[in-house]
Computed example of a mutant assay.
Amino acid sequence: MESKADVKRRLILDTTKQIILENGFNSLTLDAVAKKANISKGGLLYHFSNKESLIKGLAQYIFEQFCLNFYKYAENDSDDSDEKGKWSRALIEASKFDLEHYKELNVGIFATSYLEPEIAKTISDGYKTTLKKLEDDGINPITATIIRLALDGLYYSQTLNVAPLEEKRVNEVIQQLLEMSKSEERL
């Protein structure tokens, strides 16, 4: 059971996420978060002493949400009775959801992790754990790596707006990656 402090912290982070998604990063202020969350500014400052600590907390929270989705997709995978490729498919599905719903937030996560070594290490360690699942996925490890690198490329392109693909092409790439996860034999 979550403590009252954990519930309030999650409310603050969800509200912060909502403000950014609705109005962009430039609209983020501590006053706006407190008002929208219907809490006092002092209550907000108890959990996050300043805007920087709020953004750091948000970066960690978003990555934790990604990891929870990753495990949820793997748990619900029903494509293969022998489970080959389930972790690769989970990464594909979690990445697809994340790119569709949290593009603006991912920009902030990239910036925060670039500027904050401890956040970068936490995210990197978490991602390494995710990638370890792909290594033991029962499909060709090179195929699993290609899937991972294609997803990394989609994040780079879509999130940083570097020659982003149209939605139709993104969906086609996702479908191809899913097919790769199903048809590969282990070497």
Rank of each mutant, 00 (worst) to 15 (best):
K4H: 09
K4Y: 11
D6P: 00
V7I: 15
R9V: 03
L13W: 08
L13E: 01
T15G: 05
L21P: 01
E22H: 10
T29A: 08
K36A: 15
N38P: 06
G42Q: 13
G43L: 12
L45V: 05
F48G: 00
K51P: 02
K51R: 11
E52R: 11
G57M: 04
G57E: 01
A59T: 05
Q60L: 09
I62R: 10
F63N: 00
Q65A: 03
Q65T: 03
K72L: 13
E75V: 10
E75K: 12
D80T: 14
K84H: 14
K86I: 02
W87M: 02
W87V: 01
S88F: 07
A90D: 00
L91F: 15
S95V: 08
L99H: 08
K103F: 07
I109L: 14
A111T: 15
S113F: 15
Y114Q: 08
L115G: 08
L115R: 15
T122L: 06
I123P: 04
I123V: 14
D125Q: 12
Y127F: 14
K128T: 13
T129R: 15
K132P: 00
I142C: 00
I142Y: 07
A144Q: 06
A144P: 02
R148W: 07
Y155A: 01
S157E: 05
Q158V: 04
E166I: 04
N171Q: 07
E179I: 11
E179W: 12
R186E: 14
